[in-house]
Write a protein that binds this DNA or RNA. Structure first.
Length: 441
RNA sequence: GACCCAUUCGUCUAGCGGUUAGGACACAUCCCUUUCACGGAUGCGACACGAGUUCGAUUCUCGUAUGGGUCGCCA
């Protein structure tokens, strides 16, 4: 199929945060535009003055940017089909209303509200996702398109803007499918042809109910706060309702855009699976460079009370545990001991260790051996530990857990040699001494 | 209530008349291993129900049930 210049839009109203469903709608529009070499337009539907807020506007733009969606036309991007705020497009609406009035498609109520006279003919919505959807001639009351105060109603401005902005494909939530015949009726009244439609399924809660504002994972912002990487959320959201024809699921946005085909989007709602989203996050976390990982983890380390700048090997420390976590906030508990020497000791482990009196001598032997190491590399440290093991007639496996506990106060973590290497020779000595004194003393 | 969309393992899905119904996440077991993980292997596990059409239905049609959506001077 030849690439035709397509124009799609995401049209949020700034009355709240960026909803995960909205983000996915934007995502599919973006994928479609990028796939077809077309334009992705952002239009702000701020006709409801009472509910619009500046904060919401910012949250939506920030959310789109965070997840990595750039728009070709719209707020802060410009474009020759502006303005991109409906609040600034009244002249268009007035002009279109005049056309409708001139052609006898409207009538005015006593209070001043203007209604559009439905054609009351059967209407077929041709939908890329749902196929041909037939609507019988309606019996609903005619649709109000302008309020008595002169402001316009969503259905009207939405249609006018799509015509004026030369939108070729309307990709939006399935919640709009039932009203699409009204839009087509209006478009016909303007003497225009409707765009192609693609109504995408909704995202539901894990229990199958509608995802509402207070539900977990409803806002894009919450993913940022929960320590998700935007690339992971992007990837996961794409796979909710659409399957690329590949054997892999982890795909970068460029590949996803290349593979995207709107007609392959499902027509059934999908439930959000936070666990799988976290799995994707773990995948993306692992391929971060040490520097990128440090940058991503820093806010969470700071809020956990760690002075990132105080430990020179912070990036390497994070690198040593990154395959153990799936979300950024899990990181601090794995690396906290790198940043301080007064870390707590896990209580139940202390009991076990003190039960064996020989542990103290063993650990002191390790300290002595390590203090004599010149090559403080992981191999040098490992060699020293093996030396102690041989001297005492035990396996390294008998020493390693003990040393791990001394260095971190924990029973889990990175490789022991790695830990010792990163904290340095002197700190290793102090940590062992403190353990002997406080725990095994 | 009317209309619209949908219904394959717990979840996301592949399938587009004939398959041992495939994969991913999760879960279980095993291997690897100084811990925790990663990784590898194996296992568990599904066509909502009822009628048709057909030699044959997960696949096509209709109905029922269930879920979601829409019927605003919200968007």
């Amino acid at each position: 199929m030849p690439n035709s210049p397509v124009r799609v839009r995401f049209a949020p109203s700034p009355t709240g945060y960026l909803h995960v469903g909205g983000a996915r709608t934007a995502l599919f529009n973006w994928l479609f535009a990028r796939n077809r070499g077309g334009k992705f337009i952002l239009r702000i539907e701020d006709t409801d003055e009472a509910r619009n807020t500046e904060a919401s506007m910012k949250a939506i733009l920030d959310g789109l940017r965070w997840i990595g969606l750039d728009w070709d036309e719209g707020p802060e991007a410009g474009g020759d089909h502006g303005p991109y705020f409906q609040s600034q497009r009244k002249p268009f609406y007035d002009a279109y209303l005049a056309k409708l009035e001139a052609s006898g498609h409207t009538y005015t109520e006593e209070n001043g509200a203007v209604r559009f006279k439905f054609s009351r003919q059967p209407i077929v919505v041709t939908d890329l996702v749902c196929g041909d959807v037939h609507f019988a001639a309606t019996e609903e009351p005619d649709m109000t398109i302008r309020r008595p105060d002169g402001s316009y109603i969503f259905h009207f401005v939405n249609v006018v803007d799509d015509i004026e902005m030369a939108i070729t494909h309307v990709i939006r939530g399935e919640d709009h499918l039932s009203n699409t015949w009204k839009h087509i009726d209006l478009i016909h009244a303007f003497g225009k042809h409707p765009p192609r439609y693609a109504h995408i399924p909704l995202i539901l809660n894990p229990n199958g109910t509608k995802m509402s504002k207070r539900d977990e994972g409803a806002s894009i912002e919450s993913y940022q706060q929960a320590g998700f990487l935007p690339a992971a959320v992007f990837n996961y959201l794409c796979l909710l309702g659409w399957t690329p024809r590949t054997d892999k699921e982890k795909l970068d946005r460029h590949t996803l855009a290349t593979l995207f085909d709107a007609s392959e989007i499902h027509s059934a709602n999908a439930r959000f699976d936070m666990t799988k989203c976290a799995w994707f996050n773990a995948q993306y976390l692992r391929e971060l460079t040490p520097e990128a990982l440090l940058a991503a983890a820093s806010p969470f380390l700071k809020s956990a009370g760690h002075d990132v700048a105080a430990f020179p090997h912070a990036a390497a420390a994070l690198q040593s545990v990154k395959e153990k976590v799936s979300l950024l906030p899990e990181l601090p508990s794995w690396v906290h001991f790198f940043f301080r020497e007064d870390y707590p000791f896990e209580g139940d482990v202390v009991t076990k260790l003190t039960a064996k009196p020989e542990n103290k001598a063993l650990l002191q032997g390790v300290a002595a051996q390590l203090s004599a190491v010149d090559d403080w590399s992981e191999t040098g440290i490992t060699a020293a530990i093996e030396q102690v093991a041989a001297t005492n007639g035990v396996k390294p496996g008998a020493i390693l857990p003990l040393l791990r506990f001394a260095l971190s106060g924990q029973t889990r973590g990175p490789g022991v040699a790695t830990m010792a290497h990163l904290v340095g020779k002197e700190s290793t000595g102090r940590r062992i001494a403190r353990t002997c004194a406080e725990v095994l003393g």
